[in-house]
Nucleic acid binder design. Structure first.
Lengths: 186, 186
DNA sequence: TAATTTCGAAACCTGCGGTATCGAAACCTA
DNA sequence: TAGGTTTCGATACCGCAGGTTTCGAAATTA
């Protein structure tokens, strides 16, 4: 028998992560980021507020985990550099357009502006994995990929923040054209 | 006699706007947007918190006025379309890099994400004047200029929000190159 | 059954945006 | 100088959200 680490004594943790993630997106989508209080999210997930704070140290870090779960790994397969760039931009735009995802992203980004600790979490846990994967897939230096992320994510979030609606397809296409023309030169 | 509107009776309003604007930028620069409370801003300006709330209905609208004062009119003089685009991008980047301005911009933008009323104010009082001036100077339709603003402001604010520092000159140049190549085609 | 760990419910603290109150100060008119 | 009007400063206050503490009940192992 592969005697894995024996289960420790005591009541086991309930598997509530998926329910909390879904409840967070639903609540943020319905009420907006600021009115989606931790207490309301817990109620929507059918658990107690204290259970959330036992797993996540702050609302911001909870939302970072929600976004990691919502985005998943970036699809970086593709032929030419232009195709890779276009597909990752369209993938990001589509994810941000999903109910609650854009609001959650803009909200946690906003919180991070005044919270250096959260900014580190956002940068290291959410941005860095995609940045490293892009550096690898494109063979670009770090600062060029960081600029790419600033342009794509910044543009999509600015539209979301100013209008409350995700960017329409025609403008996503313009973004793809502009960015690909700038980065695809070999 | 040019009987202008006679001064109404009662104690005249003190001219505190300039002091409040400066105190807001200073406080936001030193403490960040969230910790720059209205009470601290008032203290830095040497006035009472109630005096601020007599003039501005909310912290968000105060900061919008601060930004209007800090940015001033956009410099849209210039020869070619490319020159106009480049100069307005560099002007925006330089303003956002001024102490407190970038933090205040990112902060009020963040607040607007969850506050539709503030979003309307931000859009109509801050974005629209520059958008209209750009439409006029470039002869571009509204949706193209809105896309331009999303790209430029979104990129600059994303960099500011993720790193806490304004965008360095080399990256501003890359932004200029990319946007000009996309928009300057006649 | 005893020990251990998590859960839920509730009370609680802190800080901030925003409001209400009220006496003092500054101005105009008579 | 006196009276009316408006703004100012100080203070207390309210609502709400993030986050903490407490404690008894539930779920598991040994």
């Amino acid at each position: 028998m592969p005697s894995g680490p024996a289960r420790p004594p005591g009541r086991p943790r309930a598997g509530v992560d998926a329910a909390v993630f879904a409840a967070t997106l639903r609540t943020v989508h319905e009420l907006g980021y600021a009115r989606a209080t931790v207490e309301r999210i817990a109620a929507a997930a059918g658990i107690a507020k204290t259970t959330i704070y036992r797993r996540w140290p702050s609302k911001g870090e909870l939302v970072v985990d929600v976004l990691l779960d919502a985005f998943g790994p970036a699809p970086l397969v593709g032929g030419t550099r232009a195709e890779i760039l276009a597909s990752v931009i369209r993938w990001g735009a589509a994810k941000i357009a999903e109910p609650g995802v854009g609001d959650a992203f803009a909200g946690v980004f906003s919180d991070a502006v005044s919270d250096p600790a959260l900014r580190v979490v956002l940068s290291s846990r959410l941005q860095d994995p995609y940045r490293l994967a892009l550096q690898d897939a494109l063979g670009e230096p770090e600062h060029r990929v960081l600029f790419f992320v600033d342009v794509v994510v910044g543009t999509l979030l600015h539209r979301m923040g100013m209008t409350g609606e995700p960017m329409v397809d025609a403008d996503v296409t313009a973004l793809v054209d502009m960015v690909v023309a700038h980065f695809a030169n070999e």
